[in-house]
Write a protein that binds this DNA or RNA. Structure first.
Ligand code: FES
Ligand code: FES
Lengths: 143, 143
DNA sequence: TCTTAAATATGACAAATATCATATTATTAT
DNA sequence: ATAATAATATGATATTTGTCATATTTAAGA
């Protein structure tokens, strides 16, 4: 459902949401060891996320990656789009040209409701909200 | 969302649902030309589907692939499992070991309802039903 | 029984994704 | 200023997925 890269990216960002702030930046190495993801690979993903302004970064000693307030207020879908690209989730499941309510493909009516539901969720849930649910014990993020 | 292989397989099976029966078998070559899928690749997929009893086949002249009554009564999920394997749809979106309502991962509550909804749909909709909707003009299957 | 049409089995090749490595650049602190 | 730290840019390798090709087996029909 989600690519490997995306899973890693989500884990890393959630880790940052919980352990970083403007004053407490975290290195790619530290993150990779914490969430058990190959560090060279994660570094690349983090760079991509920083480039898309999903996360923040600063170079040099005491530098690292972190989430600022603006980052935290973004919906999860932004992260997904940054890693997997724009279209992945929005195209027809059979890759037909125009996925259209007027001319639905044989699977459209079957999957469209679930998909719309999922998209709405991803569109509205912010990183801050997800992080807060972990803190409240509503969800669990094992490392 | 669905792999390329799966999309091709679904198209081929829907084509068979509409154009084949025990007395009217269709060759891989004919199918591949009709649904515009590379024929060597499709042949492999069709063989895999036949092996899993999603579709029927017979060798030799006048042979080919087709759907019998039993094939048509199967839910779409069987086809998906035959091509993409058992686990793809059932695992945690973050690949955590036990996706559990008791200990939901940070994305579980967000995606689980949509996923459950989709799984239920795929579990209950038969190939016959999908095919019938195309015939009734409820959905469209452009070739 | 022989030819032919088709699936089946197997494997080679290509492209995309995932993984690893390294040289460069920027920033902090001494 | 200089040394150390950490991101950035770039690219190499490995694995998976997608694509293509071919030899073998089975069954129909002449
Ligand atoms: S037309 Fe295929 S999913 Fe909408
Ligand atoms: S625990 Fe991750 S999706 Fe259920």
């Amino acid at each position: 459902m989600f690519s490997n890269s995306l899973k890693y990216a989500i884990k890393a960002v959630l880790y940052l949401a919980q352990h970083s702030c403007e004053k407490q930046k975290i290195s790619a190495k530290h993150i990779s060891e914490s969430i058990l993801v190959p560090h060279a690979y994660l570094a690349k993903l983090l760079q991509e996320l920083a480039r898309h302004n999903i996360i923040s970064s600063s170079k040099g000693p005491k530098g690292g990656f972190y989430l600022n307030q603006e980052n935290r207020q973004q919906p999860l879908i932004n992260l997904i789009r940054a890693i997997d690209g724009q279209q992945k989730l929005s195209t027809c499941v059979l890759s037909l040209k125009d996925c259209d309510e007027k001319r639905p493909c044989p699977l459209h009516n079957l999957v469209a409701p679930s998909k719309k539901n999922l998209m709405d969720s991803l569109e509205h849930k912010t990183l801050a909200e997800i992080s807060s649910e972990i803190e409240k014990g509503i969800s669990f993020f094992p490392l």
